[in-house]
């Protein structure tokens, strides 16, 4: 039994497909762009793709767990945005650039 065999409504498949597309866009953006702010937005996109999948699962299974989990993700994402943007501002003040490739001090 595959993990995808939990339902077969056309809406459900479409939601999941959209989620996968959004997640891939986010991943690719994160990997290919250097601007830290854009990378940050890509991370948010990936999180929201997952949120979409969670809501779709919840609805299909008739279980509130999926929706509730989304709230947690949103809260964590909000906290992460706050910390992440603060770090970005600090980096900008120091270097006047926000390119991710500048931040390679931890190279071996």
């Amino acid at each position: 039994m595959s993990m995808f065999d939990i339902g077969n409504s056309p809406d459900y498949t479409a939601y999941l497909a959209l989620s996968v597309i959004l997640f891939m866009i986010g991943t690719m953006g994160f990997l290919l762009r250097k601007n830290t702010i854009v990378m940050f937005m890509c991370v948010e996109l990936m999180l929201n793709a997952v949120n979409l999948a969670l809501v779709a699962f919840g609805r299909e299974l008739g279980h509130a767990g999926g929706q509730i989990f989304v709230f947690f993700v949103l809260v964590v994402a909000a906290a992460e945005v706050m910390v992440g943007l603060a770090i970005l501002v600090a980096i900008y003040r120091r270097r006047l650039r926000v390119s991710a490739d500048d931040l390679s001090n931890l190279s071996g």
Partner: peptide, 18 residues
């Protein structure tokens, strides 16, 4: 020898994860 694998670039690490 192992430390040569550490480039320090975020993208490199992210690629490995992906």
């Amino acid at each position: 020898w192992l430390r040569k694998g550490q480039s320090g670039y975020v993208r490199a690490y992210a690629s490995v994860i992906a």
